[in-house]
Amino acid sequence: MARPQDPPRGFFPFGNPFKNLSSSKSPLLSANLLSLLNNFEANLAVSITKLVPKQKTEILTVSWMKQAMESLCETHNGIKTLITDLQLPVSDWEDKWVDVYLDISVKLLDLCNAFSSELTRLNQGHLLLQFALHNLDTNSPQNLSKAQSSLDSWRQHIASKNPRIENCRAILSSLVQTLNLPKVKNSAKGKVLMRALYGVKVKTLYISGVFAAAFSGSSQSLLYLTVSNELPWAQSFMEMQNTMNSEIKSMFLSDRLTVLKELEAVDSGVKKLYPAIQQGSSLDSISMQPLKDSAAELSNGLDLVSKEVDCFFKILLSGRDTLLENLRSIGASTALATSPRKAAGKNYRGF
Rank of each mutant, 00 (worst) to 15 (best):
P232V: 06
V210R: 01
A212C: 06
A234I: 08
A213D: 07
Q220S: 11
L231M: 13
F215L: 14
W233T: 05
F237A: 13
E230A: 12
G217D: 03
N242I: 01
Y206C: 08
Q220I: 08
V227E: 11
Q235E: 15
F215I: 08
S219F: 00
M244Q: 03
F215T: 05
I207P: 07
S216P: 05
S228D: 14
A234M: 08
A213V: 12
F211C: 09
N242K: 03
S228V: 02
N229C: 10
M240Q: 12
Q220E: 12
M238P: 03
L225M: 12
M240A: 08
M244K: 00
S221T: 00
F211Y: 15
M240D: 02
V227L: 15
L205A: 11
S236V: 10
E230R: 07
G217P: 04
Q220N: 09
A212H: 04
Q235G: 09
T243Y: 13
S236G: 10
W233V: 07
N242W: 02
F211K: 06
P232K: 06
L231G: 03
L222F: 04
L231K: 03
A213W: 01
M238H: 14
T243W: 13
S208V: 08
S208L: 11
M238K: 15
E230Q: 13
V210K: 00
L231V: 08
E239R: 14
S219C: 00
Y206L: 13
N229G: 15
W233F: 15
S219T: 03
F215C: 07
W233I: 07
F215D: 05
T226A: 08
S219H: 01
Q220T: 11
T243N: 14
F237Q: 10
N229W: 10
S218Y: 02
L231I: 06
W233S: 08
L231E: 05
A214R: 02
Q241K: 02
E230V: 01
L205H: 08
V210E: 00
S216T: 11
A212F: 06
A234H: 09
N242M: 02
Q241P: 03
Q220A: 12
S221M: 00
G217V: 02
V210G: 01
S228K: 05
T243P: 08
S218A: 09
L231H: 10
T226F: 01
L205D: 07
W233R: 04
L225W: 03
A214Y: 00
M238Q: 15
V210Q: 03
M244S: 02
N229I: 12
L222M: 13
S221N: 07
I207D: 04
L205M: 12
M244R: 00
Q241A: 01
Q241L: 05
E239H: 12
A214G: 14
S208N: 14
F215N: 05
G209F: 11
L223M: 12
V227S: 13
L225R: 07
Q220K: 14
F211I: 14
T243M: 12
S219P: 00
L222Q: 06
F215A: 06
Y224N: 11
Y206T: 11
L222T: 02
P232N: 08
L225G: 03
V227I: 15
Y224I: 01
W233D: 05
L222D: 00
Q220D: 13
